[in-house]
Computed example of a mutant assay.
Amino acid sequence: MVPSPVEMFRDLPKKVCPECGEYIEEQAESYMMECDRCLANKEE
């Protein structure tokens, strides 16, 4: 049986920053791979 789209997205694991291991707060239309803190450190 094919799961509903709602169930599929609910069961996805949380996104983790590859730099520091912190969980990333996901937002609609966001394709960030790193957390805000690591992105800010790269800009400095």
Rank of each mutant, 00 (worst) to 15 (best):
E25G: 06
E43H: 10
M8P: 06
R10F: 03
E7F: 07
A40G: 03
E29H: 07
M1R: 10
P18L: 03
Y23W: 13
Y23D: 12
K42L: 02
N41G: 04
E34Q: 13
Y31M: 11
E7S: 15
F9S: 15
D36W: 09
M32E: 14
K15H: 04
V2F: 07
E34L: 07
L12A: 06
A28G: 05
K14F: 10
R10D: 08
Q27W: 03
F9A: 12
V16R: 03
Q27C: 03
E22R: 11
V2A: 09
A40K: 12
E19M: 12
S4A: 10
C17A: 01
N41F: 06
E19W: 05
F9D: 15
F9V: 10
E19H: 07
C35F: 00
P3Y: 10
I24G: 00
E34C: 04
N41I: 08
L12F: 09
D11S: 14
K14E: 15
V6H: 15
Y23A: 14
P3N: 13
C20T: 03
E44R: 10
E7G: 11
Y31F: 08
E19P: 03
P18C: 05
I24P: 00
P13I: 01
E22T: 13
Q27I: 03
L12K: 09
P13R: 02
R10I: 05
G21L: 01
E22N: 12
Y31R: 10
A40D: 13
C20W: 00
M33A: 08
E26M: 12
D11F: 04
E43F: 11
E43Q: 11
E25Q: 13
R37M: 09
L39I: 08
K15T: 03
E44P: 06
E7Q: 13
P5A: 04
D36A: 11
E44G: 06
Y23K: 13
F9I: 11
L12W: 04
C38D: 00
G21R: 02
Y23G: 14
Q27R: 10
Q27T: 05
V6C: 05
D11A: 10
M33N: 14
Q27F: 07
D11K: 11
P3D: 11
P3T: 14
M1C: 07
E19S: 14
M33V: 07
M33G: 10
I24N: 00
S30F: 01
P3A: 09
K14N: 14
F9E: 15
E29S: 09
A40M: 04
K14D: 15
K42R: 07
I24E: 00
P5S: 04
K42C: 02
Y31H: 13
A28W: 09
V2G: 13
V16P: 01
E43V: 07
S30W: 02
K15C: 02
P13F: 01
P3L: 10
L12Y: 06
